[in-house]
Simulated scan of single mutants.
Amino acid sequence: MSRWEPDARGRLAQAAMELYRERGYEQTTVAQIAERAGVTERTFFRHFADKREVLFDGGQALQEHMVAAVEAAPPSESPLDLLAAALDAAAGQFAEMPPEFPRRRQEVVAAHPALQERELIKLARLSAALREALRHRGVAEPAAGLTAETGVAVFRVAFERWAAGEAGPDLAVVLRDSLAELRALSR
């Protein structure tokens, strides 16, 4: 494959996931990923800081979509309804990609404590961004913080269930069901 073919970033991500699955995350090198994708190592580093970041590439876009959903919701929405809008936006981020990719990514992350730590950092940033969006919407503390933390917990639990194949093929349904379970618990 020529290094001038389009979508180098996508090819790198695909190559990384294939190699992580075949050889394991720890045993896979950037050189191997670049070679499999048909690009140079230099091209790899134009797209990703290191092999770990291939797994966390969509985190910022996910956060932006969830925050935008909170900001765009009608003014009369309750904090939990704002959370539901954010979770729907999250599901939309995954609707366009083949489910194998996030599921394989989850397997890799779950198998490595350092990657789990990075995942927790990503989720903490997501919670902080949601909290700030809720506060901008007029949700007072501690409700803004509790709603944001709850939203991240619902997302994480639902995503893990979906990635493990326990809850059906549609992440949006799993997210809504998980939020409904939370609402039932809080009654």
Rank of each mutant, 00 (worst) to 15 (best):
A110S: 15
A153L: 14
R104T: 12
Q116T: 12
W162Q: 10
V157T: 13
M97V: 15
F159L: 06
L123N: 07
V139H: 00
P113G: 06
A133C: 14
E166K: 00
D177G: 02
I121G: 08
L87D: 05
V173L: 15
L179W: 08
A140S: 13
A153C: 15
A163S: 15
F94Q: 08
R125H: 12
D81R: 12
H136G: 12
A86L: 05
R104N: 11
F159A: 02
A124N: 12
E100P: 11
E149R: 15
R135V: 06
L171M: 01
A89C: 04
P98K: 04
A148P: 05
P79F: 01
L126C: 00
E160G: 10
P102H: 04
P98H: 11
S76K: 13
L115E: 01
S127H: 10
Q106E: 00
F159Q: 06
H112E: 14
L126G: 13
R105Q: 12
R118N: 00
L130C: 12
G168C: 00
A163E: 06
L126A: 05
V108M: 11
G92E: 02
L171A: 05
P169M: 00
P113V: 03
G138W: 05
L123D: 05
R103T: 01
D177K: 04
L87R: 09
V154G: 06
R137M: 02
L126D: 04
A90P: 13
R118D: 08
L82Q: 00
E132R: 15
V109K: 02
A128Y: 05
A140T: 13
A95K: 07
P113I: 03
S76D: 15
Q93E: 09
S78R: 03
G92R: 06
D177N: 13
R156F: 05
E166Q: 12
E117F: 00
A85F: 01
F155Q: 08
E149C: 07
A143I: 03
P113D: 03
A95D: 14
A90F: 04
E107P: 04
A163F: 07
L130T: 05
L146I: 07
A89G: 04
P113A: 09
E132V: 01
T150W: 09
P142F: 10
A163T: 06
R156G: 14
F155L: 15
A89P: 13
G165F: 11
E96W: 13
P113N: 05
D170H: 10
R118H: 13
A114E: 14
S178T: 14
